[in-house]
Design a binder for these strands. Structure first.
Length: 415
RNA sequence: GGAGAGGUGACAGAGUGGUCGAAUGUGCGGCACUGGAAAUGCCGUGUACGGGUAACCGUACCCAGGGUUCGAAUCCCUGCCUCUCCGCCA
């Protein structure tokens, strides 16, 4: 949600931003509606002030009672109209996207993302590297056929050494983040509509969510939803900021409309697993915290010995809530390409406004909405990158050293 | 799942139709006292929206949504949540 005052004071800027983001809201009509609403609201408040005044006289003055009675219907009608205008304004406002950081590149889709740096070495193979699907079939560590049998296409099982690898990866990641000041959570895996709205997933990504029948609940698409909304309607003490939270949860996405996109293996699925980084911070800190989260992501990938690149995501590839976003694309030897493994967005006050997450600096007497950062730490995709990166000619996979204390083995072998 | 109790400001806790945005206590901020502190005393201390350069003014908010009434924290209905007891249960 953007500040409606910006809409009033700089409608042209809002209009330009909406155009750039492909937002179809009629800004001029919205501005006009807001003006009409405020005029009507002033009328209502005047009438209420008069009513309150007369009501106090009722005990001693019967004439006042008759006068107030006469006002009742008119006031009720005006109030009803102003409420209708307000909800219409809110509904439109909910569709307005966040603004962009000045350094967000222009582009139509992910091809417009700007690579910032390459890190690590591309692994060299004396043989033709397999993609992760070939590998897990050979190793017997991921089972998509049985996933489909039990839950449908897009679901899968990790099993045996593969499940241990994924488990070790997630466990290790949580420990690393805790060492870097993150508080670990286990969160609900379902959330109310208000939560999805507040975090900016609704109304923008409604088709992506699994809604439970006959309940005001959906499966979470990410623990960002439950972690950010954790502080909904709260005022945080600025002295305690930034707050850095992490959680591991499954993430459910319908992926409707994404057929044909990188569907081989389990790259794009209905359920994946993620360790998340969430930061609540003061507005002036958010750029720095955004970079800090990126540094955490890079640290993890470096420790795992993976080759990757960092890209500055362009406007055409960024969701409506985002102000600036970095993706990290790891090298997938079997695909012979870089593919997104993590994503890191500075949402500024977009979510905080919707959820009512404020901060109060008592010493400076400063108040406002916090900024939130939402960044991946690792997901299953990182495990897939490990498989492709560390594969051997015989189809076995070497386990990255940092994970060995948690796997208890240093090589995944067929079996 | 059954039975009961209850949801008021940062917290505790009054208030059962009007001058209540809300007593009192604690906490917090300021001042006084002190060599300094404790204790004590005095003053102040919610949020949002609208209007105003500002001092300030108005409106709304006592879980949420409806209703009764000239007027609702207070009465009625519905929902949500919490607590206690019983049952069931990983």
């Amino acid at each position: 949600m953007i500040d409606i005052k910006i809409l009033r004071e700089q409608p042209d800027m809002v209009k330009a931003n909406a155009a750039r983001r492909g937002c179809k809201v009629d800004i001029d009509a919205l501005v006009a509606l807001d003006a009409a609403y405020r005029a009507l609201l002033a009328e209502c408040e005047e009438m209420r002030a008069l009513r309150n005044k007369l009501s106090k006289e009722c005990a001693t003055n019967p004439a006042a009672r008759e006068q107030v009675k006469g006002m009742k219907e008119t006031l009720a009608a005006k109030e009803k109209q102003s409420e209708e205008q307000k909800s219409k304004i809110d509904a439109e406002l909910a569709w307005l996207p966040n603004f962009f950081a000045p350094d967000v590149p222009v582009g139509a889709d992910d091809k417009g993302n700007v690579p910032l740096r390459l890190v690590g070495e591309k692994p060299q193979f004396a043989f033709k590297p397999k993609d992760h699907q070939e590998l897990f079939e050979k190793l017997g560590i991921i089972d998509t056929a049985r996933g489909a049998k039990v839950a449908g296409a897009g679901f899968y099982y990790w099993s045996g050494q593969g499940a241990v690898l994924a488990d070790a990866l997630f466990f290790w990641t949580k420990r690393e983040l805790m060492n870097r000041g993150f508080r670990l959570f286990m969160t609900p895996c379902v959330a109310k509509e208000q939560t999805l709205f507040g975090t900016g997933y609704l109304p923008f990504f409604a088709e992506q969510t699994y809604k439970l029948a006959n309940e005001d609940l959906s499966l979470i698409g990410t623990s960002e939803q439950t972690l950010v909304a954790y502080h909904a309607d709260e005022t945080l003490d600025a002295a305690k900021l930034p707050l850095c939270y992490t959680a591991f949860t499954p993430c459910f996405r319908t992926e409707s409309g994404s057929y044909g996109k990188q569907t081989r293996g389990i790259f794009r699925v209905h359920q994946f697993h993620k360790v998340e980084q969430i930061v609540f911070c003061r507005p002036e800190e958010s750029t720095q915290m955004h970079e800090a989260c990126l540094e955490n992501e890079e640290y993890l990938l470096k420790q795992l010995g993976l080759h990757y690149r960092v890209v500055n995501v362009c406007d055409g590839d960024m969701g409506a809530p985002g102000w600036k976003k970095y993706d990290i694309e790891a090298w997938f030897a079997g695909f012979n390409d870089y593919r997104e493994v993590t994503s890191n967005t500075n949402l500024t006050d977009f979510q905080a406004r919707r959820l009512g997450i404020r901060y109060h600096d008592k010493t400076a007497g400063q108040k406002g909405f916090v900024h939130t950062i939402s960044a991946t730490a690792v997901t299953d995709r990182v495990a897939l990158a490990i498989l492709e990166h560390y594969q051997q000619e015989d189809g076995s996979v070497i386990v990255p050293e940092v994970l060995r204390p948690f796997t208890g083995f240093d090589r995944i072998v067929p079996g």
